Simulated scan of single mutants.
Amino acid sequence: MRPTGGPAPHRIRSTALSVALLLAVAAASTLLGAGTAHAAGYRYWSFWEGNGKNWEYATQGPSLVRPDDGTVQGFRFAVSQDSKDAAQPRRAPDFGAICAGTPAEDGRKRVALVIDPGTAADAPGGETPPALRTACAQVGPDASSAEALASVAKPLRYSSDALLCAISGYPAAGCGDEVSGDGGEKSPAASSPASSDAGEGDSGDGGDGGPSAGLLVGIGAVLLLGIAAVFRARRRR
């Protein structure tokens, strides 16, 4: 005869099952949070092309693009995860306004440039961004965007994989550095936002802050444990 005054066995099993499932969900949530909050993005110079009215993120780096006469191009230094959330230059792509004082010359082309070092919030620790400026580069007809930029904004600094690291010496150090979610610095990423060429904005595998393969395996293991607890409880009934 079952003693009176205590909980029924099926209620005990039901409570234990609920606790196991709650623990599994909580553990999975914790793992997901740990995997997505570790990185806020990368600090780098992004490369833009003007379409007459607005800015469009360049699909190639400045060393590959050979702009036509009358082109407007922009460079913006900021922290962003990828091309989808990259900050645009804070000046309209207006060729007429930028190159108004530079007359056309035979055998030369004019490329209007907007060079925007960004805000203090995006600057590396201990550095102050210089003022935004524009320039009208007058270069040979076959010159690339990188050559046009070099003609008006030296010194430029590049990484070994052709990532544009600094314009006019800013920033003084670092190149495509990963910035953690709490604002702290991390070591330069092996796959930087523009590792394919200077100015390309994709951050590579894992650069968008998504969960890694190891994290997903851990979440799967936690959920499997919870499911196993369900089956054990059912078999005991």
Rank of each mutant, 00 (worst) to 15 (best):
residue 159 S to A: 10
residue 64 L to V: 15
residue 98 I to F: 03
residue 94 D to F: 05
residue 213 A to D: 12
residue 237 R to V: 14
residue 138 Q to E: 07
residue 207 G to M: 01
residue 212 S to D: 09
residue 150 A to W: 02
residue 127 E to I: 00
residue 205 D to W: 15
residue 7 P to C: 15
residue 47 F to H: 06
residue 207 G to D: 02
residue 9 P to D: 09
residue 154 K to V: 08
residue 89 P to Q: 02
residue 135 A to L: 02
residue 81 Q to I: 15
residue 148 A to S: 02
residue 18 S to E: 15
residue 102 T to F: 04
residue 227 I to K: 08
residue 128 T to A: 07
residue 51 N to T: 11
residue 17 L to S: 07
residue 76 R to L: 05
residue 194 A to Y: 11
residue 131 A to V: 12
residue 48 W to P: 03
residue 148 A to I: 05
residue 111 V to T: 00
residue 95 F to W: 03
residue 231 F to D: 11
residue 232 R to E: 15
residue 115 I to L: 05
residue 192 S to Q: 11
residue 172 A to D: 07
residue 149 L to H: 01
residue 93 P to M: 03
residue 87 A to H: 06
residue 51 N to M: 12
residue 11 R to P: 12
residue 81 Q to N: 14
residue 25 V to W: 06
residue 148 A to L: 01
residue 92 A to T: 04
residue 181 G to T: 00
residue 120 A to H: 14
residue 162 A to W: 08
residue 184 G to C: 05
residue 223 L to I: 04
residue 76 R to G: 07
residue 141 P to A: 04
residue 41 G to D: 04
residue 86 A to S: 06
residue 66 R to G: 10
residue 87 A to N: 08
residue 23 L to A: 10
residue 57 Y to T: 11
residue 233 A to D: 11
residue 151 S to W: 07
residue 96 G to V: 10
residue 79 V to M: 03
residue 104 A to S: 12
residue 183 G to R: 01
residue 60 Q to P: 10
residue 8 A to P: 10
residue 210 G to N: 08
residue 201 G to L: 08
residue 232 R to D: 11
residue 38 H to T: 10
residue 161 D to N: 10
residue 172 A to S: 10
residue 216 L to S: 07
residue 32 L to V: 14
residue 222 V to I: 12
residue 192 S to K: 14
residue 6 G to T: 14
residue 71 T to M: 09
